[in-house]
Design a protein around this nucleic acid. Sequence first.
DNA 1: ACTTGATTTGACCATTCGGTCAAAGCAACG
DNA 2: CGTTGCTTTGACCGAATGGTCAAATCAAGT
Lengths: 202, 202
Amino acid sequence: MNKPEARTRIQERNRAAILDAGLDVFSQFGFRGATLDQIAEAAGLSKPNLLYYFPSKESVYETLLQELLHTWLDPLRAMRPEGDAVGEILGYVRRKLEMSRDYPRESRLFANEILQGAPRIMPALTGELRDLVNDKAAVIRGWSAAGRIATIDPHHLIFSIWALTQHYADFDVQVQAVLGPGDPYPAATAYLEQLFRRLLTG
Amino acid sequence: MNKPEARTRIQERNRAAILDAGLDVFSQFGFRGATLDQIAEAAGLSKPNLLYYFPSKESVYETLLQELLHTWLDPLRAMRPEGDAVGEILGYVRRKLEMSRDYPRESRLFANEILQGAPRIMPALTGELRDLVNDKAAVIRGWSAAGRIATIDPHHLIFSIWALTQHYADFDVQVQAVLGPGDPYPAATAYLEQLFRRLLTG
DNA sequence: ACTTGATTTGACCATTCGGTCAAAGCAACG
DNA sequence: CGTTGCTTTGACCGAATGGTCAAATCAAGT
C-alpha cells in the first residue's frame, strides 16, 4: 500500500539506488554541499522521482545516518570481557580496519557529519555511543587491573583505534598521494597489529 | 595602490576578518557547503564588500589552503636526523598535537578538503608533501637500521601520527560527547607519549 | 481490452546562490 | 573648501537550489 510497509520490487530497487547515490554524494560533499539533482542523477532517476520515494533531502540523509550507526558500533559491541584481552582488542582493530577498507563511504559520511558539528547525530553520540564506550572502557580497565594488558587510559585507547583505522578511509586520497597507487591495507594491518600489541603488552 | 601590494590598515583588517570568517565557515561546511553570505556576515561585512577584497569564493578558499600548507608541514620539517631518534619523533607528536589544540579549524579545513577528494590541493599532496614524507621516512628508516628505534614501517608511522593527533581536532565534538566537557588534551598528550614510546622502544 | 494503482516526468515556483555595477559615502590632503 | 581615490552598499542578474503538482505512463490483474 504505502511506502514504509509492503515494498514492491521496484520500490526496493529505487530506494536502494537512492541511498547508494546519496552515500556517494553526501560522503563527499556533506549535507549542505550535496544537491538533490546530483543524487538523482547518480541514482539514475529524475529529481521529482527521487522525491517520490523520499520526502526531502534531509530524509535521505537521515536514513543513511541511521543505518550507519546501526552497523558502526557492532565491532565494538563484539568485544567480549571473557575473551583473551589482547586478542579481543586486536580483533576490534582488525574488524574496524576492514570496515574502513570495505565501507569507506560510510566512514567519510560519519566524518563529514562530525566535522559539521554533528548537528543531526549528537543525541546518538551522547547517548548510545557514550554508554557503549563507557561500558567497554570499564571492561578494558578491568583487564588492566587484572594485569592482562598494560595500564592505559581506556577511553583514549578507543579513540586511538578509531583514529588510526578510520584514517585509511577518510584520508585515503592523501595516503594514496604519498604512497602511490596500490593497496595500503596489507601494510596498514601489519603496522597496526604491531603498534597495539606493543602498546598493550608494554 | 592596488590590493596585493601596499595594503592600508583597513585592507589589512578586512582581509584578516574575511579569512578568519572563511576559516570558520569552510572548515565546518566545506567549499560547496559554505556560502558567501555566511562568510560575509561572520566577517561583519556586506557581500559586495567582501567581493571587493577577494574576487571570488574560490579565491578566499584557496588563500586559506595556501596559508595552511605553509605552516602545516613545519613540525615535520623540524624533525632532524642528528637528534635523538625517540625524542625527535615524540617531539613531532607533541608539536602536532599542540597544533590540533591551538588550530583546530585549520585541521578541519584540511580534513574537509581531503574528504572531498582534494580537488584543489592534490598537486601539493603528490609534490611537496610526498617529497617531504619520503625524505623523513628515509630518516626514520635510518634510525631503525642503526638500532636507535624499533623496526617499523616509516610511512605508516607518519600516518599514525597524523591520524592520532588530528583526530582530537577533527572529531572534537565526538570526543567531548563521550568524555563530557573538559579539556581532553592533558590526558591525550600523556597517552600518545606512552603509545609512541612503547612502539619505538619495543 | 479495461481498469486500477503504482510510477515517472515536464513544467513550474520561491528562495538562495555567486557575482556585477553604478552610485554613494568617506578619509586624507592640498 | 574641493578634489581624489579608497571603501561601502542597494539594487540587480542569471543560474542553481529544494520542492510541488497535475498530467502522463506503466505494470498487473481481470
